[in-house]
Amino acid sequence: MIQVRGDSRSGWHRGHVIVAPDKFKGSLTAGQVAAHLAAGLRRARPDIPIVKVPVADGGDGTVDAMVDAGYARMQTGVTGPVGNTVAASFAMRGETAVVELAEASGLRRLPDRPTPGTALEATSAGTGDLIRTAVLGGARKIILGLGGSACTDGGSGLLTALGARLLDADDQPLPPGGAALRNLERIDLTGLIRVPVTVASDVDNPLLGPRGAAHVYAPQKGAGPDEVEALEQGLARFAEISRRDLGTDLSERPGAGAAGGVGFAALAYLGAQIRPGIEIILEQLDFDTLLGGARMVITGEGALDRQTLHGKAPIGVARAAARAEVPVVAASGRRTLTLTMLRRFGIEDAYALTDIEPDPELCMSNAGPLLEQLAVHIAETRFDREVSRNR
């Protein structure tokens, strides 16, 4: 459970500081970032009550953040993005399961670097395996975090793992991958496992076209121009058959292109709602309740840059804190955003590891101790002001 200086949440005192960072990608998990920031704060001001709330936005690290918040980690073997078996986790509490696509079908699950071949054949089946396992384990609600995918299969692999059959003109199952969808003729939904799904994603791309899943994201997954065109054709065929069979076209819906089109499958076949990932995660963490009586929130992520402003975790945390009139500062590895820009989004001050160590490689390799130094600096420069404001 979330702890306040060793006590349960019911014992926290007015005037606590909430430490709610996302991961520092390639360096520290969100939980590790929170622990180092808290250690630095306590070194400078041991009297400060601290609430550690690692957060995520639905992408890499979401399951870890939920486990830190008290969810149980459930691990199982699933189909990896190119048919390899991988050990993947989801988080579960009560009848709610949090499934992170990157755990099963992410680029980091490829056995080697992405290639044109893996771009054509990569599947989201492992994510469907996780959902099926969660449902069989008692889950009645799925939160599906999309991000970091290796696949551009429109979510066809996910549907297959959940019991659907995607068939060609000879009534034979299609092989995995987005390119195979060019031969799709019929979808048999007789055995499809259905469960309420909420998609956690900040991507607003449609399924098809210049802003779609193939053109925008497939090149990051190893696709060249020929592969992008093949994948676009496959997704277009999937959308056409879905429109014919379902009587509605969801390919233009914002978020349909998320995670190589997994957003489309969730919308069209699972009746999913798509919401900003950080909003969903903060709800699961009961963040609004934790804000009661807080004097300050420290959030952050590895890089405070233009991408941060598009619904990333620090902005979501800042918006929630603003509703409770709690000031927010941010800690990061590096920062390219001006304070003027950040203040428009509710972040009053920002601190970066590069402020105290200009070498980016040392910032990555020594991030923990540097974060503790940064937290000492934050306590020394900010806390008295925040205490005065909340008296």
Rank of each mutant, 00 (worst) to 15 (best):
I2G: 01
Q3I: 13
D7E: 08
S8W: 10
S8F: 06
S10L: 09
H16D: 02
T29N: 12
H36Q: 08
L37S: 00
L37C: 06
A39N: 11
G40L: 05
L41C: 09
R42C: 08
R43E: 15
D47G: 10
D47Q: 12
P54I: 13
G58F: 03
G58Q: 02
G59E: 03
G61N: 05
G61R: 13
D64W: 09
A65P: 06
D68I: 08
G70R: 00
G70M: 09
Y71W: 11
A72L: 11
E95Y: 00
A97L: 01
G106D: 07
R113I: 09
A122S: 15
S124C: 07
S124F: 04
T127N: 06
G128W: 15
D129F: 04
I131T: 02
I131D: 03
R140I: 05
R140N: 00
K141T: 05
I143Y: 04
I143D: 00
G148F: 15
D153I: 06
G154Y: 06
T160A: 01
A161P: 00
G163V: 07
R165Y: 04
L166R: 07
L166N: 07
L174N: 06
P176S: 03
G177A: 08
G178N: 03
A179F: 12
A180P: 00
E185T: 07
E185K: 06
D188E: 11
D188G: 00
R194D: 07
V195D: 02
T198A: 06
V199F: 13
D202V: 12
N205F: 06
N205K: 04
P206T: 01
L207C: 05
G209M: 05
R211A: 08
G212T: 12
H215W: 07
V216H: 02
K221E: 01
G222N: 05
A223C: 12
G224W: 09
Q233H: 14
Q233I: 07
G234L: 02
L235G: 08
R237E: 09
A239E: 10
E240P: 00
I241F: 15
I241R: 03
S242Q: 14
R243C: 04
R244V: 07
E252L: 01
E252M: 11
R253Q: 11
G255E: 08
G255L: 02
G260S: 01
G261S: 02
G263C: 10
A268C: 03
Y269V: 00
Y269K: 01
G271F: 15
I278V: 15
L282W: 15
L282R: 09
F287E: 07
F287A: 11
A294Q: 06
A294V: 11
M296L: 13
V297Y: 15
G300R: 10
R306G: 13
Q307V: 08
T308N: 12
L309C: 11
H310Y: 08
K312V: 08
K312F: 05
G316R: 12
A318C: 04
A318R: 06
R323H: 13
A324E: 08
P327M: 04
A330C: 10
T336D: 15
T338S: 15
L339K: 11
T340R: 14
M341V: 14
F345W: 12
T354P: 15
T354Q: 14
D355Q: 05
C363G: 10
N366D: 15
E372L: 08
L374P: 00
H377V: 10
E380M: 12
F383N: 03
F383R: 04
D384C: 02
E386N: 02
V387N: 10
S388P: 00
R391E: 03
